[in-house]
Design a protein around this nucleic acid. Sequence first.
DNA 1: CGGTCGCGTCTGCTGTGAGCGGACGCGGGC
DNA 2: GCCCGCGTCCGCTCACAGCAGACGCGACCG
Lengths: 101, 101
Amino acid sequence: MALPDPEPLWRHLLGDQLRGIRQDRGQTLTETAKRAGVSPQYLSEMERGLKEPSSEMIAAVAGALDTSLVELTLGVSERLRELAPAQPAQAAVRATLALAA
Amino acid sequence: MALPDPEPLWRHLLGDQLRGIRQDRGQTLTETAKRAGVSPQYLSEMERGLKEPSSEMIAAVAGALDTSLVELTLGVSERLRELAPAQPAQAAVRATLALAA
DNA sequence: CGGTCGCGTCTGCTGTGAGCGGACGCGGGC
DNA sequence: GCCCGCGTCCGCTCACAGCAGACGCGACCG
């Protein structure tokens, strides 16, 4: 019986994307949060995949980072493809993700 | 002064993807909901973008549809690209999306 | 025709978690 | 030493995630 593959969760992948883009842009968490109109503590939680942000929140933070939902979702799908090259490597992939978080 | 582009929201795009895939698979809303372990009324709301599903819910419904988060996010990003060919067409694009919903 | 069934959606509800204020640890500058 | 800004921790409130029961509708059957 095949188990469902343990794909990473949306909120983790999204958070990774957001943090990655923010760092690429050289923005601090505090200034991005301010630009997005959210609290710094909340943005911190979003980036760490601790919260399920609403669609409007995602859009606001994307706007603050001068990016868009299309780039975020594309980034997530690309990341997922990198993470899932073959079935037997799943356990190693999981460990790598845990280290990145 | 450039306004932020009125990109569709994540929950709407996700819901459209889920309904599209479900219909492609020839599954009823009721059986997909059962397979995913969610209520039919909730799946209906998800598909119509009325609710912000948790990451686990997204994963559960994806599993029930024999799809994955990578396919969903890729589908969303592709849809966004279709929807945003050029800046002046944004208002027409918005109207088209409203009709689809 | 009336009754039954399954589909998808509406309505109202409760417990949980989204989002945030205040506090904290840390490093850097003066 | 004090101050500042960074990012995160902790605790809180209220909006909403998720669902039970009800409903409208079309299809089917006797």
